[in-house]
């Protein structure tokens, strides 16, 4: 049996497939469809200090092979999360990464410190890149000194795995990844959603209430892969690859390009068990390729030759 384990800092993920923040609730909604302990990990919905209502409807719209969302970080707040969600995730054997969103550096620190006191938190992913809220979110994530400062302040406060989730809506994601690495982040998650838009031509109204929103799904995969590739060249810390992963093959592409872990997001809206199916598919691929470990995939991209016609899709 090939090894599918990946270790980042002091967390060993049993396989490289995690659920992306905001696409799997608090990890407890889908128990009819899967055992969450079979996932590499569960990244929670973004948790803020106080509960957030989220944005008004319409929050979602389908686009060609993708979707727009503008949820606006609706969440129960850290108190309710720690009281009523985290203990259940722990009971079910999930490797839980708490995603934190905030509108100030103090709020990020406060939420993290509250989580530090709890059992069952394996690590953190910091959302500095939500495109759908005015306070916090993108105005941190597109300002490199802010990302660096948030990373620095949180690193001082935890020995647990700390990943920073980056936005692709910047000129150079590599620069942001380097800032995170320099301030002690254990990993960078690449990428959050792209800013996108769709219009109803009959009414000439935007299809979502905030006019623009976060664009996700299989349509963004090639752009996300290019962002992971750029980050890979910029830093040596692990990268968590995210963006339109629908299948094991998609996940393997991200790992070949340089991701150590991947997150599955939009796919869960169609198949809540997609994460465990993709993990099984990766294991099957490793066996088929006679590889001993999934780690051998990471960054194994062969750029020594021109792509073959078959690889270019002309088979």
């Amino acid at each position: 049996m090939p090894s599918t384990e990946i270790t980042i800092r002091n967390v060993t993920f049993k396989n490289p497939v995690l659920t992306a923040s905001g696409t799997f609730g608090y990890g407890l909604e889908c128990e009819a469809f899967l055992d969450v302990s079979r996932l590499g990990g569960v990244v929670t919905k973004s948790i803020s200090r106080k509960p957030r209502d989220g944005n008004p409807p319409q929050r979602i719209a389908e686009t060609t092979a993708g979707m727009l969302n503008s949820i606006g970080l609706a969440n129960v707040g850290v108190d309710v999360f720690l009281q009523s969600k985290l203990p259940l995730l722990r009971e079910r054997g999930a490797t839980t990464i708490v995603n934190i969103a905030a509108s100030s550096i103090e709020e990020y620190c406060e939420v993290l410190e509250m989580c530090e006191e709890q059992e069952g938190v394996s690590g953190y992913e910091i959302n500095v890149s939500c495109p759908n809220v005015k306070d916090g979110g993108l105005n941190f994530g597109t300002h490199c000194p802010s990302v660096a400062q948030i990373t620095r302040e949180l690193r001082r406060r935890t020995e647990k795995m700390l990943a920073i989730k980056l936005t692709p809506n910047v000129t150079s994601i590599g620069e942001f990844a380097r800032a995170c690495e320099a301030e002690g982040a254990d990993a960078v998650s690449c990428v959050n959603t792209f800013i996108g838009m769709a219009v109803d031509v009959r009414t000439r109204r935007p299809k979502i209430a905030t006019i623009t929103g976060g664009y996700s799904g299989p349509a963004i995969k090639p752009i996300a892969l290019a962002k992971v590739y750029e980050a890979r060249k910029a830093v040596s810390i692990p990268i968590i690859g995210i963006g339109g992963i629908m299948s094991a093959e998609d996940a393997i592409e991200f790992m070949i390009v340089g991701a150590s872990l991947v997150q599955v997001g939009t796919a869960l809206f169609i198949d809540p068990a997609a994460g465990v199916k993709i993990a099984a598919g990766i294991e099957g691929y490793l066996a088929e390729q006679k590889m001993d470990s999934v780690r051998d995939l990471i960054g194994s991209l062969d750029t020594s030759m021109q792509p073959s016609l078959i690889a270019a899709g002309w088979s």
């Binding site: 905001g22 696409t23 799997f24 609730g25 909604e29 889908c30 919905k45 989220g54 008004p56 409807p57 929050r59 979602i60 969302n69 949820i71 609706a74 869960l268 809206f269 809540p272």
Partner: peptide, 9 residues
């Protein structure tokens, strides 16, 4: 099933 939070009223 409640995981996307896309259908508020």
């Amino acid at each position: 099933i409640g995981i996307c939070q896309g259908c508020p009223v």
